Simulated scan of single mutants.
Amino acid sequence: MLTLSGTRSRLSLLRSALASSMASLDRRRAADIPSGYIDDYVALNWLRWDGGHLRLTTVGSNILQQLTLQMKAE
């Protein structure tokens, strides 16, 4: 779970793992996502539960788009 101590580094880890986490969810391999990440994504409003499935929120979609643009720029 996201805690106040180490929040900046945890956010960085979560952010960098978002694309691979979404790929795991698309393959129905949630077990491949590091422990606690899903809870943190939901707490940060990057993912939401929808009918038993996790879906990207607008915030999560924007972050994923930013990451994609950064990777293309590199």
Score class of each variant (00 low, 15 high):
12 S>H: 14
8 R>W: 06
49 W>Y: 10
42 V>Y: 03
47 L>T: 02
51 G>W: 00
52 G>Q: 09
46 W>L: 14
21 S>Q: 09
8 R>M: 07
28 R>T: 00
32 D>V: 08
29 R>T: 08
27 R>T: 09
10 R>T: 12
10 R>F: 04
10 R>Y: 11
21 S>F: 05
45 N>A: 15
36 G>I: 03
20 S>D: 13
49 W>F: 12
4 L>N: 14
19 A>V: 10
53 H>G: 02
52 G>L: 11
6 G>T: 08
31 A>G: 05
50 D>Q: 11
36 G>P: 00
37 Y>D: 02
52 G>T: 05
41 Y>C: 03
51 G>P: 02
35 S>A: 09
8 R>E: 13
35 S>Q: 11
33 I>K: 02
22 M>T: 10
6 G>L: 11
8 R>T: 14
23 A>I: 02
44 L>S: 09
15 R>T: 13
18 L>K: 00
24 S>M: 06
20 S>I: 07
24 S>F: 12
15 R>L: 06
54 L>P: 00
54 L>G: 00
54 L>E: 01
13 L>R: 08
10 R>E: 04
22 M>N: 14
33 I>G: 01
14 L>F: 03
42 V>W: 10
6 G>W: 04
13 L>W: 06
22 M>Y: 12
52 G>M: 07
48 R>W: 13
50 D>F: 03
54 L>T: 01
14 L>V: 05
9 S>D: 13
35 S>I: 06
33 I>E: 07
50 D>W: 10
43 A>F: 10
52 G>R: 07
48 R>T: 09
31 A>M: 12
34 P>R: 13
47 L>S: 00
48 R>K: 15
23 A>Y: 01
30 A>P: 01
41 Y>P: 02
35 S>C: 05
45 N>G: 13
16 S>M: 09
8 R>L: 09
50 D>C: 10
30 A>S: 07
36 G>T: 04
31 A>E: 14
9 S>L: 08
38 I>M: 01
23 A>L: 03
44 L>I: 12
19 A>W: 05
19 A>Y: 02
35 S>H: 12
22 M>I: 15
22 M>F: 14
43 A>Q: 07
30 A>T: 00
19 A>D: 05
55 R>Y: 04
11 L>S: 04
44 L>Q: 08
28 R>P: 00
51 G>I: 00
53 H>P: 00
32 D>Y: 07
39 D>H: 03
34 P>A: 09
14 L>E: 04
17 A>Y: 13
13 L>A: 11
40 D>H: 12
44 L>V: 09
28 R>L: 03
29 R>N: 14
18 L>Y: 07
11 L>A: 05
35 S>L: 10
44 L>Y: 08
5 S>Q: 15
5 S>Y: 08
17 A>I: 04
7 T>S: 10
7 T>I: 15
15 R>G: 09
47 L>R: 01
5 S>V: 15
19 A>K: 06
5 S>G: 13
4 L>S: 14
10 R>Q: 13
3 T>L: 12
55 R>P: 00
7 T>Y: 13
19 A>G: 06
50 D>T: 11
4 L>T: 11
42 V>I: 14
3 T>K: 11
42 V>H: 02
15 R>N: 11
32 D>F: 10
17 A>W: 15
43 A>W: 01
6 G>F: 09
11 L>M: 14
12 S>A: 12
46 W>F: 12
25 L>C: 06
